[in-house]
Design a protein around this nucleic acid. Structure first.
Length: 574
RNA sequence: GCGCCCGUAGCUCAGUCGGAUAGAGCAUCAGCCUUCUAAGCUGAGGGUCGCUGGUUCGAUUCCAGCCGGGCGCACCA
């Protein structure tokens, strides 16, 4: 299921009307365009609108209005589904759905529970999502936080529509950065022992380096004298790596992110997988030697130029490891590879897609989700970040300051390809105004209803037990319509790798809930003193209470499901 | 110079497989708690959808050019 019950029935009805018209010779097209049902902006335009008639106009060589007319004439079960079917101006088909059909949505949500919104579009297909993959040379910073939030949400979205998803972290535990890390820690280590040595050029200056050096010093205290400087530096490198990777795991954990898989670059080199991957390219005639270096003929597949994979000095480039890594991903049998990249790596996309093609796969096998870097502000002033000078705001600091839920929601509020301004002072200072609380509050408010209801001995009925036909108020139907759109939001969001659509949807749903909550009562007043005092007040009968409790339960369920997809908690109290 | 991303309300941003009078939050102003959580609600003001052309019955959405901002163009990772 990828549509709500209502949308499904309407789509089916429209399609059979189109088919009926074709059989009668009124329409001639052999295939119909995708039937998308929009929720019109204005209430008088009905509940759902279709533009099929207009999009068929040119191919049918008929006026849109006439086509719409033909469709309407051929609608078979019209009275069971629609209250009103209107054709407007150029050829809009404005459909008003019977409340009874809308009420079915509540049965759907009630029966499916946490599964509401799931689909089987990706069933049987395996996806590998690689994200974060920060070098273990320092703590994660804010940009990684955004990548982590987006990567996790993409994983969960795809899993929700049926894909078999694995989230993987590629650990760059080999090469130059590791050597620099070791040398930097070693230098600090020596300083702690009262010896001064030249700090490596391009080394890591962050204070965490000294902290790590101190820890290593405590650990190596007894054996230090037995180690040669060379061994000592190697120990520094190994221990610093372990320490920093551990820090990264901890940071991710406190951010609520868990990877199913950690993949080490070093293992590719040790197992000669890099050589093998390159050999395969050589066999395919895609590797050539020039000026003492080996090149990958990526320009053959649309890259702007060929790329070095093995340098004159015999060392592999980073790209060589990456080729082997992606070769390995393909070997592991994933149908789709998704890489969540920082936008500063966008130039890397063509050569990675060239790798796909070099191994005989369509370039679409690799999909890239670009995440723009976060522009960090503190009190309106931009904070420049650089690992080299060690001055940057870590992801940990952000989590500590604004909380994991708020940070995630913030990261997932906008399209990941756009720049994100993140003002720490603002986020801290107005933390109660953060939109995440708005959504969570809607959820907590409903939970509060359950508590009060139970105190008063009011039972919470299932959708089947309640008489839902009393739900005819526009606000009630409005909420139901919103709930019925959820499956499509999830599907569209997943297929486009755009979690922010879910965030946006949740804000809208929460807004409708808050409006409803302020305007209507679910439970009858505690004291039955003055029902008559406010003449306009609606009478909350037990029947109405029962139906509204079902409605509230459905809203709560969808809020929870949506937050779950985003990796954000749905608190019961606030 | 070439390539990618972005340009929508004072600010931060949604919306665009082409559709009917372009939306939200923040900020500003005016209101709403003796009743289910006011972390909430109601109302008001605020727009040449960067500019110019093109395609179309219809363009904020697609195409081209230009302007402005960001990023990338290593035998670094």
């Amino acid at each position: 299921m990828s549509q709500g019950v209502v949308q499904e029935k309407v789509t089916t009805a429209l399609l059979s009307a189109l088919d009926g018209a074709r059989q009668k010779g009124q329409l001639k097209a052999t295939a119909w365009p995708a039937l998308t049902l929009d929720a019109p902006k204005r209430p008088e335009w009905g509940d759902l609108a279709s533009t099929v008639a207009m999009s068929l106009a040119s191919s049918e060589q008929k006026a849109p209005h006439d086509i719409a007319q033909i469709i309407v004439e051929n609608l078979s079960q019209r009275d069971q589904i629609f209250d009103r079917v209107e054709i407007v101006r150029p050829g809009f088909l404005n459909l008003t759905i019977k409340p009874a059909l809308w009420q079915e949505v509540l049965h759907e949500v009630g029966e499916q529970g946490t599964r509401y919104g799931q689909a089987n579009i990706g069933t049987g297909r395996r996806v590998l999502v690689e994200y974060v993959s920060a070098n273990p040379t320092g703590p994660l910073h804010v940009g990684h936080g955004r990548g982590a939030a987006v990567g996790q949400a993409v994983c969960r979205l795809l899993a929700t529509i049926g894909y078999d998803v694995v989230g993987e972290y590629y650990v760059n535990d080999a090469g130059r950065q590791m050597k620099l890390l070791g040398a930097s820690v070693y230098a600090r280590y020596q300083e702690l022992s009262g010896r001064t040595i030249d700090f490596p050029e391009d080394g890591y200056h962050g204070t965490y380096i000294t902290a790590v050096a101190q820890q290593i010093r405590d650990q190596l205290d007894r054996v230090e004298g037995e180690l040669t400087p060379r061994d000592l530096e190697a120990r520094c490198r190994a221990l610093a790596y372990q320490e920093l990777l551990g820090l990264i795991r901890d940071d991710l954990k406190s951010f609520g992110i868990e990877f199913q898989s950690w993949f080490s670059e070093a293992t590719l080199l040790e197992s000669k997988a890099v050589e093998r991957a390159l050999d395969e390219l050589k066999t395919r005639g895609l590797l050539f030697e020039q000026e003492g270096a080996w090149w990958f003929r990526s320009s053959k597949y649309g890259d702007e130029k060929d790329r070095v994979v093995r340098k004159q000095d015999g060392e592999f480039t980073y790209l060589a490891s990456d080729i082997a890594y992606h070769h390995d991903k393909l070997r592991r049998g994933y149908d789709v590879l998704i890489n969540v990249f920082g936008a500063d790596h966008h130039g890397y996309i063509p050569r990675m897609q060239a790798v796909m093609q070099a191994y005989g796969h369509p370039k679409e096998r690799l999909q890239v989700v670009l995440v723009q870097l976060v522009k960090l502000l503190r009190g309106g002033v931009e904070v420049k970040m650089s690992k080299r000078t060690g001055e940057f705001i870590t992801m940990r600091e952000v989590i500590d300051e604004v909380g994991a839920d708020a940070a995630k929601f913030y990261f997932l509020m906008r399209d990941s390809t756009t720049h994100l301004e993140f003002d720490l002072e603002l986020a801290k200072q107005r933390s109660a105004d953060n939109p995440v609380y708005y959504v969570q509050y809607a959820h907590a408010r409903i939970c509060s209803l359950w508590r009060v209801a139970s105190e008063r001995g009011i039972a919470r009925p299932s959708a089947a037990e309640a008489d839902l036909t009393v739900l005819t108020d526009p606000d009630e139907l409005g909420l139901i319509k919103k709930l019925s759109a959820y499956p499509e939001v999830i599907q569209a969001s997943a297929l486009a790798f755009e979690p922010h659509r879910v965030t946006y949807y949740l804000q809208q749903l929460a807004a409708q809930l808050h409006t409803f909550y302020n305007k209507h009562r679910v439970l009858p007043p505690a004291t039955d003193q003055e029902h008559d005092e406010t003449a306009a007040a609606e009478i909350v009968t037990s029947k109405r209470t029962a139906a509204r409790l079902v409605l509230m339960g459905a809203v709560q369920q969808v809020l929870r499901n949506g937050l779950e997809v985003l990796g954000i908690s749905a608190p019961e109290h606030m």
